[in-house]
């Protein structure tokens, strides 16, 4: 395959497509067997995961979900997706070793024996003098975070997937021809701060009263990985329902669907029949029954022309929307 036919970086020797592994700074060209060193601008390597589902496959995956999710059967069978966009969502991955020192002061507890009023030996715990200690740290760092607000897409992380599947090197222009490439809004420096902050918090022993540390990140490997997601949508009652499908494994990530509608023929029919029957027996009975009916409507807060119309003419009640993700 020529380099121009795929979205990634090709081998500079033979033009063949290249696969990369996250965290590895070398790769081997499958076509010409040349080993290659991988570098990124400002130390950031940029990769993407290739989609395994096309648009039709993504729609089928969404339909399969509809069949099991309590969505209105009529909606599910007549549903027509409108368009569909392949989106490449950015995630930061940071690896390295945090090295430095930590000084800390911990609470101590002293157990002491004493004699009570009856002369019995008892034990009690007392707060001792704080203990000061220091440690030299060398801790592995592995951190992953979305590079922008991805809450509308229902994808929280890609840690496992990106470390298992083969990655492609990003050539922005080629990738942008395949789908919408999201820009990261979180800067690399923020990711470093977040990762180190989390590490400090997790590695701090319990009962620490006071601490100070100085840590640096050595052997940093910072990668930006773009993950493919299909953004689908359909119109129903002039309302747009978005559906996000994982373009790697077909999982429905996030979506909202019309609920199962219920037909309530019995209620308006029963009311009309009862009222007619009461009036046919005696006008007073009819009036009393009408008053009782209005009282019941009032108790539900529906004594209005709209409420009465709803009770008699709204024969199909839309179900609660089904939300996923």
């Amino acid at each position: 395959m020529a380099a121009a036919e795929f979205g990634g970086i090709g081998c500079p020797q033979c033009g063949g497509p290249l696969n990369f592994r996250e965290g590895s700074l070398t790769t081997l060209c499958g076509a010409c067997r040349t080993a290659l060193a991988v570098t990124g601008s400002a130390g950031i390597t940029r990769y993407y995961l290739e989609e395994t589902l096309d648009l039709a496959g993504a729609r089928s995956a969404a339909r399969r979900f509809l069949a099991t999710a309590g969505v209105d059967d009529a909606v599910a069978s007549r549903l027509r997706f409108q368009g569909g966009e392949l989106c490449f969502l950015p995630f930061w991955r940071l690896r390295g070793i945090a090295v430095g020192w930590r000084w800390l002061e911990r609470e101590t507890v002293i157990e002491e024996e004493y004699l009570d009023e009856q002369g019995m030996t008892r034990r009690r715990e007392q707060k001792g003098l704080p203990e000061q200690q220091s440690e030299i740290l060398a801790l592995p760092v592995e951190y992953s975070s979305p590079a922008c607000d991805l809450s509308p897409y229902g994808l929280a992380g890609i840690a496992t997937v990106s470390s298992v599947l083969a990655l492609k090197g990003v050539s922005f222009e080629r990738l942008a021809r395949r789908g919408i490439v999201f820009d990261p809004t979180k800067e690399a420096e923020q990711i470093r701060r977040e990762a180190m902050g989390l590490l400090r918090e997790r590695s701090l022993p319990k009962e620490t009263v006071r601490h100070e540390e100085r840590l640096e990140l050595s052997g940093e490997q910072l990668a930006l990985i773009y993950y493919p997601v299909w953004k689908l949508g359909f119109l129903r009652d002039e309302r747009l329902y978005p559906v996000m499908v994982d373009a790697v494994n077909g999982r429905l990530l996030k979506g909202r669907f019309p609920g199962r509608a219920t037909v309530r023929l019995a209620s308006p029919l029963a009311t009309v029949t009862l009222l007619l029957f009461a009036f046919s027996l005696q006008v007073t009975a009819g009036i009393v029954l009408t008053a009782l009916f209005l009282g019941w409507l009032a108790s539900r807060g529906e004594v209005s022309s709209a409420g009465i119309a709803r009770h008699f003419f709204l024969l199909v009640v839309p179900g609660k929307e089904v939300e996923h993700g």
């Binding site: 970086i9 081998c11 500079p12 020797q13 290249l18 990369f20 070398t26 790769t27 081997l28 067997r33 040349t34 080993a35 290659l36 060193a37 991988v38 570098t39 990124g40 601008s41 400002a42 950031i44 390597t45 940029r46 990769y47 090197g169 990003v170 050539s171 922005f172």
Partner: peptide
């Protein structure tokens, strides 16, 4: 930012392939 860069691991002196 500019894209990912790959450098062929070929010895600039003798042209032998370097092990990765």
């Amino acid at each position: 930012e500019p894209d990912l860069r790959v450098i062929p691991l070929i010895c600039p002196d003798c042209g032998a392939r370097l092990p990765a």
